[in-house]
Simulated assay, not measured.
Amino acid sequence: MVGEPQDDCLFCKIVAGQIPADVVQETETTVAFRDINPQAPTHILVIPKVHHRDAAALAAAEPGIAADILREAGQVAAEEKLDSYRIVFNTGSGAGQTVFHAHAHLLGGRGMQWPPG
């Protein structure tokens, strides 16, 4: 069922506490934790507690939770004292998505180039 935890999903297991993560913030609907393969000095993932394959599926099914992710990313950025930062949603393997549970990458602490790679 859409939104239900998936047994084979890494992020669902983090939400359930089955796999440890360096959690920096948790709300009723989201969990934010440090990426284990950081691409910037600050690289935090903000994920919904509900399972949806990608950002587009989450936004279509539960737009309020999609908004929660953006709000929490902003709050985490403020707590991390980031003056500027980037929020990235990769959707699909061709865009670099490797875990098929919607999530935002909060990247900061260094200059960001445009266009991104």
Rank of each mutant, 00 (worst) to 15 (best):
A59M: 07
I65D: 00
G117D: 11
I44Q: 11
Q75P: 00
P5V: 04
D8R: 08
L82I: 08
T91I: 15
K49D: 08
R110Y: 01
P63H: 03
R34M: 06
K13M: 02
R86D: 12
Y85Q: 08
E28C: 00
D54M: 04
E62Q: 13
A78M: 05
D7Y: 02
P38N: 11
R71A: 13
P5F: 01
G17P: 05
H52D: 09
G117K: 06
A66Y: 01
I87C: 15
T27D: 02
P116F: 04
V23K: 11
G108K: 09
Q113C: 05
E28L: 07
D22I: 03
T27H: 02
D22A: 15
V46S: 06
Y85I: 10
R53F: 08
F11N: 04
A61Y: 01
G92N: 09
H43S: 10
P116G: 15
P5W: 01
V76Q: 09
K81T: 13
C12K: 02
V88W: 01
E4T: 11
Q75K: 12
M112Q: 13
Q75I: 12
T91Y: 03
L106T: 09
A56W: 00
I44Y: 06
V24P: 07
A59L: 10
H103P: 09
A21F: 03
R110S: 14
Y85L: 09
P63F: 00
P48S: 08
C12Q: 02
L82E: 08
H51M: 06
K49I: 06
Q39P: 04
Q18V: 01
V31K: 13
A95N: 07
F33A: 05
I69T: 13
W114S: 13
W114Y: 14
I69Y: 01
D54V: 06
V31T: 14
H105T: 14
L58R: 06
D7C: 05
P115A: 01
G74F: 01
